[in-house]
Amino acid sequence: MEDKQIIELYNQRKEAAIEHTAEKYTAYCFNIANNILHNHEDSEECVNDTWMKAWNAIPPTVPTYLRVFLGKITRNLSFDKYRASHSESRGGGQMAVVLDELEEIVAGSSDVEAHYEQKELVEAINTYLKKLPERDCNIFIRRYFYAEETGVIARRYGIKESNVLMILSRTRKKLHTFLKEEDFIS
């Protein structure tokens, strides 16, 4: 079923909306959750919660891209669950590596300096990503939005994993510099 039709079902408050959403987007959302959680059961739970969140959000929200809309919900839910189960512990799983990599970008900044709104930070990241060469931007998103394994990213773009690592390393450095220039980090 087309996304527009599914959204129409949500607007009409028909529960078939959830059924069709699940049919079409379970694999997509499950993988986002599983990349973060590395746990089948928890990932399934997040996916089911995603349908409920979507049900509550549409209407009034009318997603431009239903898939991305759902993906973002799953990602948030999964990350909340990840944080709840890992608190401050380090190590283990892909998500820990992803966070360690992000640590490089925010390195040197303190926890108490948040004088910005999150939406300003999001806008800055959007600006930065749009300046990147297309492939570097895509690789960044596969890694830090989807928390995808570098080996999987390498296969996706037909390049060596070591090249993915190099591109990620460079984009992290550039983002660090960019956020510094924009006063998001000290």
Partner: peptide, 20 residues
């Protein structure tokens, strides 16, 4: 800024970038 905040902000980037 903490790394978790950055991860969450990346979660809100433009849909078009994600689609791409």
């Amino acid at each position: 800024m903490r790394r978790e905040e950055l991860f969450q902000a990346i979660g809100q980037i433009d849909d078009t970038l994600i689609v791409k």
